[in-house]
């Protein structure tokens, strides 16, 4: 009998599936609790709001998928969003002062491009240090978090910058009743899902996340692939930042603080392993992000105080990674 048939019979994968579904079962319980505590939770309009609120970070989780697929991590996602949004906010203020009409397609496009550029620069620095100089990803991106936020606060003098009264808002722009944020997110989801699954780069990234030596022996440019992953993540986080700023209307010095700790557990929940080589964007990362945001939304509907969010998110991260680690056979650190 072939090995694959033997496996199907034995159901050798069942163990982890049971636990995985166990995690989702907890979510089910949470949703039931949410629906009971606030009857507006399950309404269509709330679900619409939920999906809309997920849109910016959806780009973040897409970017994180690439980095995690390679076995790395990017803890600077939140600060990346912040500094990109801050730069854009400063530019908007400057341009408006010069009499430029902000509320135009061309300017909006330019703002997005700049946000992606700033994010990409952060990604380049991360990528060079990690890919070329072999720095440990979580230490490098941890340092980058501090540096990026510090620079961001420096250039803004840690002041709040309001942009929706200067002509830059995304929250009110709709097409056929659906927010433009959702359209943007969908476009990026499709583009990057395609890249991850259907491009040579994507399959090489998945391969090298699993077996770095074999990938190198086969002549894959693992350095370049890692480098590109961090650039993708950086650029997408930059875009996520400007999307989030466009949605909320302002950029404060604590903007997007801790967002990496929403994005990363969202990815893990969506089946993207911290250890590399596993997962996909559609449906995995998307579902993971929606789950995380549903929790946020539900908690808001329950009128939860701020600290509850961090506690619940902490617990989710713990559980999700606990399951992810079950099959881990490497060293304990």
């Amino acid at each position: 009998m072939s090995e694959s048939k033997k496996l199907k019979k034995k159901g050798g994968l069942e163990n982890s599936l049971v636990f995985k579904y166990g995690v989702y079962f907890i979510f089910l319980l949470m949703f039931i609790a949410f629906s009971f505590s606030n009857k507006n939770f399950l309404t269509l309009s709330n679900i619409g709001v939920l999906i809309q609120q997920s849109a910016p970070l959806m780009l973040g989780v897409i970017g994180m998928t690439f980095v995690m697929m390679d076995g790395g991590i990017d803890i600077s996602a939140g600060s990346n969003m912040y500094i990109s949004a801050a730069v854009c906010a400063l530019l908007i203020t400057k341009w408006r002062a010069q009499g430029v009409e902000i509320e135009s397609f061309g300017i909006y496009l330019a703002i997005f491009a700049i946000a992606a550029l700033v994010g990409a620069v952060i990604g380049v620095i991360n990528g060079v240090m990690i890919a070329k100089y072999k720095m440990v990803p979580f230490i490098m991106t941890l340092i980058m978090t501090k540096i990026a936020r510090g620079i961001g606060m420096y250039i803004t003098n840690a002041k709040l910058i309001i942009i929706n009264n200067q002509g830059f808002t995304l929250s009110d722009k709709r097409l056929f009743g659906i927010s433009i944020l959702i359209y943007i997110a969908v476009v990026f989801i499709l583009i990057f899902h395609f890249i991850l699954r259907y491009s040579r780069y994507g399959i090489q990234l998945k391969a090298q996340g699993n077996n770095h030596e074999a990938a190198q022996k086969m002549g894959f440019n693992t350095l370049r692939n890692t480098f590109v992953a961090y650039i993708i993540c950086g650029a997408l986080c930059g875009l996520a930042g400007v999307m989030a700023a466009g949605a909320t209307g302002s950029v404060a010095s604590a903007f997007a603080e801790g967002n990496e700790f929403i994005i990363i557990p969202a990815a893990v929940l969506g089946g993207i392993s911290l250890f590399g080589g596993k997962g996909n964007i559609l449906p995995g990362a998307i579902i993971g992000m929606l789950l995380m945001n549903t929790v946020t939304n539900g908690l808001t509907m329950m009128g939860a105080t701020p600290y509850v969010y961090t506690i619940v998110r902490g617990a989710i991260i713990f559980l999700a990674v606990m399951v992810d680690s079950m099959n881990y056979k490497g060293e304990l650190r």
């Binding site: 600290y307 509850v308 961090t310 617990a315 991260i317 713990f318 680690s325 881990y328």
Partner: peptide, 30 residues
């Protein structure tokens, strides 16, 4: 226990405990 028995990477295990404990501190302070 998370690192030695549950095989979780320390950066994520301590990250989640950090979030939970700091949340508890805020709750207590509140």
């Amino acid at each position: 226990l998370a690192v030695s028995r549950l095989k979780m990477p320390s950066f994520v295990a301590t990250l989640s405990t950090m979030m939970i404990i700091s949340g508890i501190a805020v709750w207590f302070g509140n």
